[in-house]
Every structure is written in C-alpha cells, then in structure tokens.
Design a protein around this nucleic acid. Sequence first.
DNA 1: CTAGGTGCAAAGGGTTTGCTACAAC
DNA 2: GTTGTAGCAAACCCTTTGCACCTAG
Lengths: 143, 143
Amino acid sequence: MTHHESVLAELKAAGVRLTPQRLLVLQTIAEAPGHASVEDIHRRAKQAYPYLDVATVYRTVQLLKRLNVVTEIDIGHRLHYEMAAEGARHHHMVCDECGGTYDLAPRQLESLRQRLEHEFGFRANLDHFTVTGVCAACVARAG
Amino acid sequence: MTHHESVLAELKAAGVRLTPQRLLVLQTIAEAPGHASVEDIHRRAKQAYPYLDVATVYRTVQLLKRLNVVTEIDIGHRLHYEMAAEGARHHHMVCDECGGTYDLAPRQLESLRQRLEHEFGFRANLDHFTVTGVCAACVARAG
DNA sequence: CTAGGTGCAAAGGGTTTGCTACAAC
DNA sequence: GTTGTAGCAAACCCTTTGCACCTAG
C-alpha cells in the first residue's frame, strides 16, 4: 500500500467523503515543492479545475490538518501546509533575507525538547517549529 | 536616569514627536503584565483617553518596534508587544491548553543557536522565539 | 509657522460562514 | 434517498491607508 493509498484509507475510515475537490487539494499539497500556502494550493489546483473555490481549499486543509494528513506551518504571517509524512517529519529554518526555507531534522531539536521538559515540565510541541534568521548564503553575500 | 527617561531620550534623539498618545501607548505597554496585543493596549489606554484610535496604536507600536523600544512577539495568530528591556531579554513558552505564557532565558536556547550555526551556517534570530506545547500544570491536570 | 501626527472612515488582505443546489455514499 | 459538501457571496477580523484637521517643536 503506497502512502497515497494509506492516506485515502485513513480518510475513508474517518467517514470523510472523497470528493474530486478534496483529492485535488490533497494531490496538490503532495506535489508541491515543500510547503504551500492556501493561496499556492488554490492557484495550482485551479489549473486542473478552475471552479475550485478558496473556501473549499480552506475547509479541506483544516479537515486534513484535523486528521493529521497534513501539518500546518506558521511562516511569516501566513499558514503553510505540507504532507504529514510521519516517517520524515522535519522542521524549518526561514531566511529573513532571501525568504529561503531549509529543513531541520527532528534530532536537531531533541535536546531542546528534553531540556524544556526536564527544567519546566513543559511538553513542547515542535511539530510546527520554525526558526528565522539569516542563511549561510546570505551571510556569505552580505555579512 | 530611569529606564523610562532613557527611552524618552532615545525617542527625542530619533526626532520623534512625543505626543500624549504615544506616551500613553508606551506607558500602557510598560505597565502591561507581560506582552500585550494591539487590542489589549488599545482597550487599556482608552480608559485614560477614550478618543485614542486603534490606528494610532498600530502606528505607534510599529514606530516603537522600528526604534527597538518594544519587541514584537508572534503568539498564536496575533502580534504582541512588550518593552525591549535589553538587560532581560527572554523568550516564551505558550501553553496550547490554558493559553498561559512562560518565560525562557536566552541561555536555554544558546546550545540550539550554536548548533544551527555550526551545522548549517544559519544565524538564527531567536529574539522572537516562542515554543508552543503543554505546560506542567496542564500536563498534571489532564495528562 | 510647519512638519508631522491624530482621528475618522474606508479599503485591504486573508479567512470564515450562511445558504442552496448538488454529488458521494 | 440522505447527508454532507461545493460554490458563491457576504461577513469577519485584523491591519493599513487617505485625508482634513490639529498640535509638538
């Protein structure tokens, strides 16, 4: 069973109707390079089905988020979405200069997570973790 | 020279007009417990001067942010503001359950910052750093 | 006096919602 | 056939902006 098939199975199990619109949104998110904003998803998906409404995209990403099929990432001031892909969960570094985003493996954050738990009893949820700063390329270019 | 006085001196040095509205907004932020949203600031400040407009609050916090008098914190989906207070810079943990916010000292994040710099050459800007999760109290209460 | 700020109201961008026709099951 | 969903448009929230009047320096 491919990942795509298992996602569809999950959705059916949750009693969710598999409408063409939902499949399209799902496929669009899956095919997007990295994470995509609602606007990105809408724009790309409309190429396949021009009647698709933004409201449907909003409702669908919320549904998929609730079912843990996609994860929500807070970048700048818009929410972005990407496939949850449990096996490859990662976090992001966003460059303030060039806007580029870079992946960060969960193990990079493990020590921080443990520290917060031990010192404060705070169970950090780093699923949507994003750090901003200046990437190596921009540091090299501008200082 | 108190902190308040030095802030006023900074503003004058920057050629900023010290209007009653600006002083009121500044004072309101300074007196707020922790960080405050624009709405919080506006609501509180209006008690002293009912004609104060939200637009003025927005313009003022942006001005103060530009002058590094206040810092902007991205909590949930609204921006919050607090006095910059250089000597006591800190970060936040926000509880998803109860909405409570807790301070985090810069040293707690230092190892993370160094790791990102060494491994990726990424200069993380942790000034506005916020982690979400579940606080100790809520963990105890609900599991 | 004069540059610049204030209040007001209106516009703006992103997101949500009420409704009716329609499609998945 | 039922029940939930899509599309549409309007509402919504937070934030920004244009403008005439006013005020700090």
